[in-house]
Nucleic acid binder design. Structure first.
Lengths: 320, 320
DNA sequence: TTGAAAGCGCTAACAT
DNA sequence: ATGTTAGCGCTTTCAA
């Protein structure tokens, strides 16, 4: 028999199906003798409960779905570590689906996860429209990590980028740097944060990148992983000694950065994941106690994760 | 109503449940009029079929499970591209689970996927014991990519590493190199393949790495991504011009290699995935026609994928 | 403490 | 062409 059922186990143990069901879920209200008989029969038969059937009957699955916008993004793996840790701690299983980096695929994947009627859905860095996420959230608890939705019914966990920029600038100031340049590719919001931070610290933001000229910057803050890599190679190519002549901090924490030894500032990805999963599971758990209606109960928590500065080999005190 | 069911749709359209079921699956044996009424009702209610219930009743889910040994491995994302492509082409949905890089977790994840009673399971680079995989394969079609099991009942797709080494050596020979070094960390099988390839091409394998000495190698073959990175930095650090003085080919195709511009030789990961999924789906599809018993039907196909050499910037013809 | 019975939402023979 | 009737494997009242 390829897939023994509860009934097979019951027959072999000489009890009823319901009793087996109780035993399988570790209910305390079963006699020791019977329990062992059931366990023995189950083991001999190689019985494994059918999750689909269980979910259908119980109305909950004990599983949450995770939608990864793009599996290629190395950040996702780290975020997932956090997701898995928190889910594991609370006894929830995770099922993933991939958006393949394309919104159309992502939309489809979201639909598939939704149709599974899992206990909740966690969207990692979704690229689809907010309205589509809200629609899903109307039928099932949803949390989002890596993107902030301005809508109730969805919990969002994001990195505090502005704080990260401030942290980097502060650190550079502490190291004695006075003239700092910011390299960025169209992140105006963060560029503004940079300028504000520089002002606040009493430093000067330098835009002129003629190195070794009198007013040249002594430190660079690069916004984003790719910009960071470009910045580093650019500095090297310009013949500059890093960190001898110029210090570099990259905002963003792609795993490659650690290997390359660059100093980074960013919210720890796994922590983002942990908090997002915690929010989702809280929402799921609270569904029974709270007052709201449907899966869209609650106000839509908005969590922001503080940055961590990881000093590696591209920063050093300014020594004139 | 949060989750309308088939019955709700039937009631609203004034037909029976079965008819709605037929319409939902696009059966041709339904009158145009009724069909439209059903579709309209379903749409108004926002009906979405419950995959669990469907799977339970139909005995098949239209989904395959993918177990990633480690999400952090950048190779997996590429393999998954291939898996997704082939599955998509054949109308099969994919559900992933992660082994988190730890055999214990992987074992657990395999069990969870198994308990879902999906149509098939695809294991990517599994690190658990062969016996455990075989046990799963006894209850459900299983294919493995990135590892070769010597057991019937499981299809395996792997890269042809020996051919890759041969290809690299041949190319180096074509470029005029005569003395080649092989850098490797405990891959004796491939080292032997290297030596054989070098012999065959009439070249000489050099072990002495004193650069710029008379007998120094003019080309290096590094086995594995990390070894490759180490080799490249090592050469640079030794003050050598690559590819001016030494050509380098890395066996293994981590995405980082492309960015770093190193010439690589490896089986295309997505192709591995495509073939593995094809094997799995063939096995699933063939389950009805063939003669074997259970999910372990068939002989256990063993597919090997030929390498591709991608010439980037670390190789060039020998110019004495 | 144990068993019987009624579904969960759907599909798949069977009727009609 | 459309409706009826059983289940799929499990959980969960409700009785005993």
């Amino acid at each position: 028999m390829s897939h023994p059922t509860l009934e097979d186990v019951a027959a072999r143990a000489g009890v009823s199906r319901a009793l087996v069901s109780l035993v399988m879920r570790g209910s305390p209200k079963v006699g020791k003798e019977r329990r062992e008989a059931v366990l023995k029969a189950a083991d001999e038969l190689g019985y494994r409960p059918n999750v689909m059937a269980r979910g259908l009957a119980a109305g909950r699955t004990g599983m949450a779905g995770v939608l990864a916008a793009d599996l290629h993004d190395p950040l996702f793996a780290s975020v997932h570590d956090g997701l898995a840790e928190e889910a594991g701690r609370r006894g929830v299983r995770l099922l993933l689906a991939s958006g393949g980096g394309r919104p159309a695929r992502e939309r489809a994947a979201l639909g598939e996860l939704f149709d599974l009627r899992l206990d909740g859905l966690l969207l990692a860095g979704p690229r689809i429209a907010a309205a589509e996420i809200e629609r899903a959230a109307a039928g099932c608890p949803v949390a989002v990590v890596g993107r902030s939705l301005r809508s109730a019914g969805v919990d969002c966990v994001t990195a505090d980028d502005a704080a990260a920029v401030r942290l980097a600038v502060t650190r550079l100031a502490d190291l004695g740097h006075r003239r700092i340049a910011c390299m960025s590719v169209g992140r105006s919001r963060l560029e503004k944060a940079f300028e504000a931070a520089v002002d606040e610290a009493g430093l000067t933001a330098v835009e002129d990148l003629r190195w070794r000229s009198p007013g040249a910057p002594t430190a660079v803050l690069a916004l984003g992983d790719v910009t960071g890599t470009a910045a580093l190679t650019g500095l090297y190519r310009a013949g500059l000694d890093v960190p001898g002549e110029v210090s570099l901090i990259v905002h963003g924490d792609a795993p490659g950065a650690a290997a390359a030894g660059v100093t980074t500032v960013a919210a720890p990805p796994a922590e983002l994941g942990r908090l997002a999963m915690a929010a989702l599971l809280d929402r799921i758990g609270g569904a029974g106690g709270g007052g709201g209606g449907g899966g869209a109960a609650g106000e839509g928590r908005r969590v922001t994760v503080p940055p961590v500065l990881t000093e590696r080999t591209t920063t050093r005190p300014l020594t004139p």
